[in-house]
Amino acid sequence: MAKKTYDLLFKLLLIGDSGVGKTCILFRFSDDAFTTTFISTIGIDFKIKTVELRGKKIKLQIWDTAGQERFHTITTSYYRGAMGIMLVYDITNEKSFENIVKWLRNIDEHANEDVEKMILGNKCDMTDKRIVSKDRGEMIAREHSIRFMETSAKANINIERAFSELAEAILDKTAGKEPGDPIDRVMVDRRQQSNTTKSCCN
């Protein structure tokens, strides 16, 4: 049997209006007038990325809404098992920013209540087209007690950092869990852990 090559597995979702650049994340292999890449024609389902945090090797499985947002059909099945959500708006598009509140409501309705969230103001390289100030992004994040960052998928600004921070926040919550553990055992572990914590604090 092959050895396990990672310590933890986190399922993350990218959510937000169409055109905010969720699927453009690091898209460098672009089409031209006469050829198209085979992959861009069929589309990407999910990605696996590895980050190392506090000596732990963490696998991130990142899912995109793949255009479902256009039809407002993002429901419970899409959110199932998600441990982290990147909520993306476009700093050059007022509507996408206003809709963050709607997405937050959708998440409250359908996602696990302890899902870790982060708001990303994407396309921060397009300074001359900016409509949503960084202050407004920070404010809405503060109101909902969510982390916030401005990113540029195109210029590769803060993308890695955003994923690392989200993963770190999930890591804080899940310390002690092992991948593939049955749920009940995880809960037992958690109880034991909180007991231990209590006794050492007292």
Partner: peptide, 29 residues
Amino acid sequence: DMFTFQNVGFSNTVGNNKYLTCADCEAGP
């Protein structure tokens, strides 16, 4: 095991397959 990959992208399903891409620049298959 797909989680053996350090970084990789999986395309949408075509028949019995998903095609693999680079997770960063999406070059593929």
